[in-house]
Design a protein around this nucleic acid. Sequence first.
RNA 1: GUGGAUGUGGCGUAGCUGGUUAACGCGCCAGUUUGUGGCACUGGAGAUCGUGGGUUCGAGUCCCAUCUUCCACCCCA
Length: 452
Amino acid sequence: MVDDFIGREDDIMNKTEPRTLSGFMELLPEEQILFDQMKEKIENTYKKYGFLPLDTPILELSEVLLAKAGGETEKQIYRFEKGDTDISMRFDLTVPLAKYVAKNYGVLSFPFRRYQIGKVYRGERTQKGRFREFYQCDIDIIGDEELDLVNDAELPKIIYSIFKDLGFKDFTICINNRKILNGLFESLEQKEASVEILRVIDKIEKIGKDAVIEELSKLQVPSNNISKILQFIEIQGTNDEKIEKLENLNIENELFKQGVYELKEVTKNIRIFGLPEENFKIDLTIARGLDYYTGTVYETFLNSYRELGSICSGGRYENLAEYYTDKKLPGVGVSIGLTRLFYKLNELNIINVNKKSIADVLIVPMIEDLQIPAKYAEKLRNIGVNTQIYLGQKKLKAKMKYADKLNIPYVIVIGEDEVQNNNAKIKNMQTGEEKNISLDTNNEEILKIIKG
RNA sequence: GUGGAUGUGGCGUAGCUGGUUAACGCGCCAGUUUGUGGCACUGGAGAUCGUGGGUUCGAGUCCCAUCUUCCACCCCA
């Protein structure tokens, strides 16, 4: 205290401004609670379907992570050297999965069903709803040499369960098959720029039909091909009608036929797994995604918030780990971009961030000796009541205010009067109702008061 | 990578064509209520107006630079 005057020099010293890197989401407690709840629901559903947990390192050797060279994502990778080790941060969970499966091929049981929820990193330009660090919630089913097509039909059901569980009703899981479009291109002898064409087609909802025509001509697609492609993606009707129309197009191309067959099979099996008809739709414009998808592809939309874009996408790939092993490992998987999903739902007030407390009870001791409050807190915790003791010398008023701000539903005051009578005073913070309970009250009674 | 914006107490904002002690709401702290929160009232703390230069008698307000963040495109979750 004597140094206080001299110490003022320090106060004038510049403090470092506490900042968070752009593109990194950091939440307030009440938001974090909600975020964690969503994450937990997703995880529980994955488990419910028998998927095994997996956690891989955020850092990998660059040579491993970048085995598949090129592409847009590689430019965005966080990469650095520590000593003479060239290290990269994972930019998705699929590449680490591929490495993991190749590495542990001998000890894993196939079909290998794993879920992984974790953060991934992409150093791209930030913008609305786009993050540099974000959670992906992945499930994949990996087969050894082959993976039955019926697996493609189970994933939509799992996605359905999750979004149902998250409280959404009006959403659509769109499915398509890459082979259909690729087969169509083959039959049109449109081999050039097929990936680019797919991207343009995928954007039709966003940019409109005319813009698609314009983009396609820019790609040097002959105009008769453009009209055939458009005619094709504009096929309307129910799911069954669409399949029928596809079959009746009489396109003599093996790939195309295979694609239509797969789509029909998947559709049939989706119904068997119990996905309601109104929640899935064949959408022939779904083409986006990583270029390694080779068969079934999925995209999921909230119909009232179509502008969010796909909130869950995935598909079938023929060879997961071709850069690590000669084994052929086909798989099918989907990924939920939880960070973006949460951010957007929050922004649109779709999810309610009403303060919800973690603690069920705040014990407020008004005596110096904490033995009784501490013991009582343990008693509550042992019967499953989340209990916090207010530690610190403050007026009762301040302690009540604290409980109020944290939205803790019950406060238990233990003061001298209470201790003398072997009592505690429990207050319902919502109704304001107070009553005395004996410190010896049995557990069932307490649970009845607190948990209702 | 391309293009366009932004920056004022913890947060959200006001500050007119440059003019004395930078305003408001929320939040925070204290009191009215010495063992009781939410409401109300009263009072209080807290900003060298992103940073550095320049123009001017004088700049949050004008000019330049720089950093930061944001938005769109690209691509994606």
